[in-house]
Amino acid sequence: MSEHTAAMNTRKLAATQLLALIGYTVREARHKWTLVALFALTTLFLLGLATVVSVDVVEGSIASARLFGTIPLEVGNTTIPVSDAVTVIQVAIVSMLTTFGLVLALFVTGNIVPLTLQTGWVDLLASQPLARTVLVTGRALGAVAVVAVTFAYLFGGSWTVLTWKTGFGNAGFLLAGIVILFTFLCCYSGMVLVGVLTRNSPISIIAGVGTWFMGLLLYPLHRYEEWTTAFRSGWPRNLASFIAETLYWIMPKSLELTENATKATRAEPFNWMPFLTSLPFAIVCLALACWWFSRQDY
Protein backbone atom coordinates (compact mmCIF):
# COMPACT_ATOMS: atom_id res chain seq x y z
CA MET A 1 0.00 0.00 0.00
CA SER A 2 1.41 3.40 -0.96
CA GLU A 3 1.79 6.12 1.65
CA HIS A 4 -0.83 8.17 -0.14
CA THR A 5 -3.37 5.32 -0.07
CA ALA A 6 -2.55 4.61 3.56
CA ALA A 7 -3.06 8.26 4.49
CA MET A 8 -6.31 8.35 2.52
CA ASN A 9 -7.52 5.20 4.25
CA THR A 10 -6.63 6.68 7.63
CA ARG A 11 -8.59 9.84 6.80
CA LYS A 12 -11.55 7.78 5.58
CA LEU A 13 -11.45 5.69 8.75
CA ALA A 14 -11.30 8.82 10.92
CA ALA A 15 -14.33 10.27 9.07
CA THR A 16 -16.26 7.00 9.54
CA GLN A 17 -15.37 6.98 13.24
CA LEU A 18 -16.38 10.63 13.62
CA LEU A 19 -19.76 9.93 12.04
CA ALA A 20 -20.20 6.83 14.22
CA LEU A 21 -19.56 8.87 17.38
CA ILE A 22 -21.90 11.66 16.27
CA GLY A 23 -24.59 9.08 15.52
CA TYR A 24 -24.03 7.39 18.85
CA THR A 25 -24.32 10.71 20.71
CA VAL A 26 -27.61 11.52 18.97
CA ARG A 27 -28.89 8.02 19.78
CA GLU A 28 -27.77 8.45 23.38
CA ALA A 29 -29.67 11.75 23.62
CA ARG A 30 -32.75 10.07 22.15
CA HIS A 31 -32.58 7.14 24.53
CA LYS A 32 -32.02 9.34 27.53
CA TRP A 33 -35.14 11.29 26.56
CA THR A 34 -33.09 14.47 26.12
CA LEU A 35 -33.89 14.81 22.47
CA VAL A 36 -37.45 13.58 22.96
CA ALA A 37 -38.01 16.14 25.72
CA LEU A 38 -36.55 18.95 23.60
CA PHE A 39 -38.70 17.89 20.65
CA ALA A 40 -41.79 17.67 22.83
CA LEU A 41 -41.15 21.17 24.20
CA THR A 42 -40.58 22.52 20.69
CA THR A 43 -43.70 20.81 19.36
CA LEU A 44 -45.76 22.33 22.17
CA PHE A 45 -44.31 25.72 21.33
CA LEU A 46 -45.05 25.33 17.62
CA LEU A 47 -48.60 24.16 18.28
CA GLY A 48 -49.04 27.16 20.55
CA LEU A 49 -47.70 29.47 17.87
CA ALA A 50 -50.00 27.94 15.28
CA THR A 51 -53.12 28.16 17.41
CA VAL A 52 -52.58 31.34 19.42
CA VAL A 53 -51.73 33.69 16.57
CA SER A 54 -54.28 34.21 13.85
CA VAL A 55 -53.98 37.19 11.51
CA ASP A 56 -55.91 38.43 8.50
CA VAL A 57 -53.67 40.04 5.96
CA VAL A 58 -55.05 42.51 3.44
CA GLU A 59 -52.70 43.99 0.85
CA GLY A 60 -49.58 43.15 2.84
CA SER A 61 -50.83 44.62 6.09
CA ILE A 62 -52.59 43.13 9.07
CA ALA A 63 -56.28 43.93 8.86
CA SER A 64 -57.14 42.12 12.08
CA ALA A 65 -55.44 39.87 14.56
CA ARG A 66 -56.98 37.40 16.95
CA LEU A 67 -55.72 35.32 19.83
CA PHE A 68 -56.95 31.72 20.00
CA GLY A 69 -59.00 32.50 16.91
CA THR A 70 -61.69 34.38 18.81
CA ILE A 71 -60.23 37.12 21.01
CA PRO A 72 -59.77 40.18 18.75
CA LEU A 73 -56.65 42.28 19.07
CA GLU A 74 -57.35 45.94 18.32
CA VAL A 75 -55.10 47.21 15.62
CA GLY A 76 -56.97 50.50 15.40
CA ASN A 77 -56.31 52.79 12.55
CA THR A 78 -52.63 51.93 12.47
CA THR A 79 -51.52 49.82 9.55
CA ILE A 80 -49.02 47.17 10.65
CA PRO A 81 -46.96 45.66 7.84
CA VAL A 82 -46.94 41.87 8.03
CA SER A 83 -43.17 41.82 7.84
CA ASP A 84 -42.91 43.97 10.97
CA ALA A 85 -45.36 41.85 12.92
CA VAL A 86 -43.63 38.63 11.93
CA THR A 87 -40.22 40.08 12.71
CA VAL A 88 -41.37 41.15 16.17
CA ILE A 89 -42.58 37.61 16.91
CA GLN A 90 -39.37 36.14 15.57
CA VAL A 91 -37.21 38.54 17.58
CA ALA A 92 -39.15 37.45 20.67
CA ILE A 93 -38.43 33.81 19.83
CA VAL A 94 -34.75 34.60 19.23
CA SER A 95 -34.52 36.48 22.54
CA MET A 96 -36.08 33.56 24.35
CA LEU A 97 -33.70 31.10 22.72
CA THR A 98 -30.56 33.13 23.31
CA THR A 99 -31.28 32.97 27.03
CA PHE A 100 -33.55 30.13 28.10
CA GLY A 101 -32.89 27.94 25.04
CA LEU A 102 -29.10 28.24 25.21
CA VAL A 103 -28.92 27.49 28.92
CA LEU A 104 -31.26 24.50 28.43
CA ALA A 105 -29.08 23.23 25.58
CA LEU A 106 -25.98 23.51 27.78
CA PHE A 107 -27.72 21.66 30.59
CA VAL A 108 -28.85 18.73 28.48
CA THR A 109 -25.49 18.26 26.77
CA GLY A 110 -23.37 18.81 29.86
CA ASN A 111 -22.86 15.15 30.67
CA ILE A 112 -21.88 13.93 27.20
CA VAL A 113 -18.10 14.26 27.60
CA PRO A 114 -17.95 13.12 31.25
CA LEU A 115 -20.04 10.06 30.31
CA THR A 116 -17.47 9.18 27.65
CA LEU A 117 -14.73 9.24 30.26
CA GLN A 118 -16.42 6.83 32.65
CA THR A 119 -14.13 4.01 33.72
CA GLY A 120 -14.98 0.91 31.76
CA TRP A 121 -16.37 2.82 28.80
CA VAL A 122 -13.40 5.03 28.00
CA ASP A 123 -11.17 1.92 28.07
CA LEU A 124 -13.34 0.23 25.48
CA LEU A 125 -13.53 3.28 23.22
CA ALA A 126 -9.90 4.36 23.50
CA SER A 127 -8.63 0.83 22.84
CA GLN A 128 -10.23 0.91 19.40
CA PRO A 129 -8.09 1.90 16.43
CA LEU A 130 -9.10 5.54 16.68
CA ALA A 131 -7.18 8.63 17.67
CA ARG A 132 -8.30 10.19 20.93
CA THR A 133 -8.72 13.50 19.15
CA VAL A 134 -11.38 11.83 17.02
CA LEU A 135 -13.09 10.53 20.14
CA VAL A 136 -13.36 13.95 21.81
CA THR A 137 -14.23 15.73 18.58
CA GLY A 138 -16.84 13.13 17.67
CA ARG A 139 -18.57 13.42 21.01
CA ALA A 140 -18.43 17.24 20.98
CA LEU A 141 -19.81 17.38 17.44
CA GLY A 142 -22.44 14.86 18.49
CA ALA A 143 -23.61 17.24 21.20
CA VAL A 144 -23.66 20.09 18.69
CA ALA A 145 -25.65 17.83 16.32
CA VAL A 146 -28.24 17.16 19.06
CA VAL A 147 -28.70 20.89 19.60
CA ALA A 148 -28.58 21.63 15.86
CA VAL A 149 -31.36 19.10 15.17
CA THR A 150 -33.50 20.68 17.90
CA PHE A 151 -32.81 24.20 16.67
CA ALA A 152 -33.54 23.15 13.10
CA TYR A 153 -36.88 21.83 14.22
CA LEU A 154 -37.66 24.90 16.31
CA PHE A 155 -36.52 27.53 13.81
CA GLY A 156 -37.72 25.63 10.77
CA GLY A 157 -41.06 24.92 12.45
CA SER A 158 -41.56 28.50 13.67
CA TRP A 159 -40.59 29.86 10.29
CA THR A 160 -43.00 27.49 8.52
CA VAL A 161 -45.88 28.30 10.89
CA LEU A 162 -45.38 32.04 10.60
CA THR A 163 -44.94 31.91 6.84
CA TRP A 164 -48.04 29.77 6.52
CA LYS A 165 -50.06 32.10 8.78
CA THR A 166 -48.89 35.37 7.30
CA GLY A 167 -47.48 34.60 3.91
CA PHE A 168 -44.23 36.37 4.89
CA GLY A 169 -41.08 34.27 4.98
CA ASN A 170 -38.11 35.82 6.76
CA ALA A 171 -34.89 33.96 5.90
CA GLY A 172 -33.00 36.09 8.43
CA PHE A 173 -34.80 34.21 11.19
CA LEU A 174 -33.25 30.96 10.00
CA LEU A 175 -29.86 32.65 9.96
CA ALA A 176 -30.44 33.70 13.58
CA GLY A 177 -30.72 30.00 14.42
CA ILE A 178 -27.23 29.42 13.03
CA VAL A 179 -25.90 32.38 15.06
CA ILE A 180 -27.38 30.92 18.25
CA LEU A 181 -25.93 27.51 17.39
CA PHE A 182 -22.53 29.19 16.97
CA THR A 183 -22.95 30.80 20.40
CA PHE A 184 -23.76 27.36 21.82
CA LEU A 185 -20.67 25.88 20.17
CA CYS A 186 -18.44 28.54 21.77
CA CYS A 187 -19.89 28.00 25.24
CA TYR A 188 -19.96 24.23 24.78
CA SER A 189 -16.26 24.08 23.89
CA GLY A 190 -15.50 25.49 27.36
CA MET A 191 -17.70 22.77 28.76
CA VAL A 192 -15.81 20.08 26.78
CA LEU A 193 -12.48 21.28 28.16
CA VAL A 194 -13.71 21.31 31.74
CA GLY A 195 -15.44 17.94 31.17
CA VAL A 196 -12.18 16.37 30.01
CA LEU A 197 -10.25 17.94 32.88
CA THR A 198 -12.68 17.05 35.66
CA ARG A 199 -14.79 14.16 34.24
CA ASN A 200 -17.62 15.72 36.23
CA SER A 201 -20.99 16.60 34.70
CA PRO A 202 -22.17 19.26 37.18
CA ILE A 203 -18.84 21.10 37.01
CA SER A 204 -18.95 20.93 33.19
CA ILE A 205 -22.45 22.40 33.13
CA ILE A 206 -21.40 25.18 35.49
CA ALA A 207 -18.44 25.88 33.19
CA GLY A 208 -20.64 26.03 30.09
CA VAL A 209 -23.31 28.24 31.61
CA GLY A 210 -20.55 30.29 33.27
CA THR A 211 -18.89 30.86 29.90
CA TRP A 212 -22.19 32.08 28.48
CA PHE A 213 -22.85 34.28 31.52
CA MET A 214 -19.34 35.78 31.44
CA GLY A 215 -20.08 37.00 27.93
CA LEU A 216 -23.17 38.80 29.20
CA LEU A 217 -21.30 40.27 32.13
CA LEU A 218 -18.13 41.35 30.39
CA TYR A 219 -19.74 43.26 27.55
CA PRO A 220 -21.07 46.13 29.75
CA LEU A 221 -17.72 46.24 31.57
CA HIS A 222 -15.98 46.60 28.22
CA ARG A 223 -18.52 49.06 26.81
CA TYR A 224 -18.89 51.37 29.83
CA GLU A 225 -15.72 52.26 31.68
CA GLU A 226 -17.51 54.10 34.46
CA TRP A 227 -17.58 50.96 36.60
CA THR A 228 -13.84 51.29 37.18
CA THR A 229 -14.48 54.39 39.30
CA ALA A 230 -15.59 51.97 42.01
CA PHE A 231 -11.85 51.30 42.46
CA ARG A 232 -9.26 53.72 43.73
CA SER A 233 -7.45 55.47 40.93
CA GLY A 234 -4.01 54.17 40.11
CA TRP A 235 -3.03 50.52 39.90
CA PRO A 236 -6.20 49.00 41.44
CA ARG A 237 -8.32 50.66 38.80
CA ASN A 238 -5.84 49.80 36.04
CA LEU A 239 -5.67 46.20 37.22
CA ALA A 240 -9.46 45.83 37.36
CA SER A 241 -9.78 47.34 33.92
CA PHE A 242 -7.00 45.13 32.57
CA ILE A 243 -8.57 41.94 33.97
CA ALA A 244 -12.01 42.81 32.59
CA GLU A 245 -10.63 43.72 29.18
CA THR A 246 -8.45 40.61 28.97
CA LEU A 247 -11.36 38.38 29.91
CA TYR A 248 -13.60 40.20 27.48
CA TRP A 249 -11.29 39.47 24.59
CA ILE A 250 -10.68 35.86 25.65
CA MET A 251 -14.23 34.73 26.42
CA PRO A 252 -16.99 34.20 23.83
CA LYS A 253 -19.04 37.32 23.38
CA SER A 254 -22.43 35.81 24.05
CA LEU A 255 -24.27 39.11 24.41
CA GLU A 256 -22.95 40.52 21.16
CA LEU A 257 -23.61 37.23 19.39
CA THR A 258 -27.16 37.45 20.70
CA GLU A 259 -27.40 40.94 19.27
CA ASN A 260 -26.24 39.53 15.94
CA ALA A 261 -29.00 36.92 16.06
CA THR A 262 -31.53 39.73 16.50
CA LYS A 263 -29.85 41.67 13.69
CA ALA A 264 -30.10 38.66 11.43
CA THR A 265 -33.82 38.41 12.16
CA ARG A 266 -34.27 42.11 11.40
CA ALA A 267 -32.16 41.76 8.25
CA GLU A 268 -29.66 44.26 9.63
CA PRO A 269 -25.93 43.93 8.82
CA PHE A 270 -23.84 41.72 11.09
CA ASN A 271 -21.10 42.86 13.39
CA TRP A 272 -18.46 40.25 12.57
CA MET A 273 -16.12 41.10 15.44
CA PRO A 274 -17.89 38.88 18.03
CA PHE A 275 -17.70 35.92 15.64
CA LEU A 276 -14.04 36.41 14.86
CA THR A 277 -13.05 36.92 18.49
CA SER A 278 -15.22 34.13 19.94
CA LEU A 279 -14.15 31.42 17.49
CA PRO A 280 -10.54 31.28 18.81
CA PHE A 281 -11.92 30.50 22.28
CA ALA A 282 -13.82 27.53 20.87
CA ILE A 283 -10.84 26.31 18.85
CA VAL A 284 -8.36 26.69 21.72
CA CYS A 285 -10.70 24.98 24.21
CA LEU A 286 -11.33 22.04 21.90
CA ALA A 287 -7.62 21.77 21.03
CA LEU A 288 -6.68 21.83 24.72
CA ALA A 289 -9.34 19.23 25.48
CA CYS A 290 -7.97 16.96 22.73
CA TRP A 291 -4.41 17.50 23.87
CA TRP A 292 -5.20 16.81 27.51
CA PHE A 293 -7.31 13.75 26.70
CA SER A 294 -4.57 12.37 24.45
CA ARG A 295 -1.98 12.40 27.19
CA GLN A 296 -4.09 10.96 29.99
CA ASP A 297 -3.80 7.40 31.26
CA TYR A 298 -7.06 5.44 31.46
Partner: peptide, 21 residues
Protein backbone atom coordinates in the same frame (compact mmCIF):
# COMPACT_ATOMS: atom_id res chain seq x y z
CA UNK B 1 -16.17 -2.51 31.33
CA UNK B 2 -19.36 -0.56 31.28
CA UNK B 3 -21.54 -0.64 28.19
CA UNK B 4 -24.26 1.99 27.92
CA UNK B 5 -27.36 0.28 29.26
CA UNK B 6 -29.67 1.79 26.66
CA UNK B 7 -27.92 0.04 23.77
CA UNK B 8 -28.84 -3.46 22.69
CA UNK B 9 -26.12 -6.07 22.21
CA UNK B 10 -26.45 -5.62 18.46
CA UNK B 11 -26.17 -1.84 18.72
CA UNK B 12 -23.04 -2.10 20.90
CA UNK B 13 -21.39 -4.31 18.31
CA UNK B 14 -22.61 -2.09 15.48
CA UNK B 15 -20.99 0.96 17.12
CA UNK B 16 -17.70 -0.85 17.56
CA UNK B 17 -17.91 -2.18 14.02
CA UNK B 18 -18.22 1.39 12.77
CA UNK B 19 -15.29 2.48 14.92
CA UNK B 20 -13.30 -0.33 13.31
CA UNK B 21 -14.20 1.12 9.91
Amino acid sequence: RSYPGFLTAGQVLDLFGKLLG
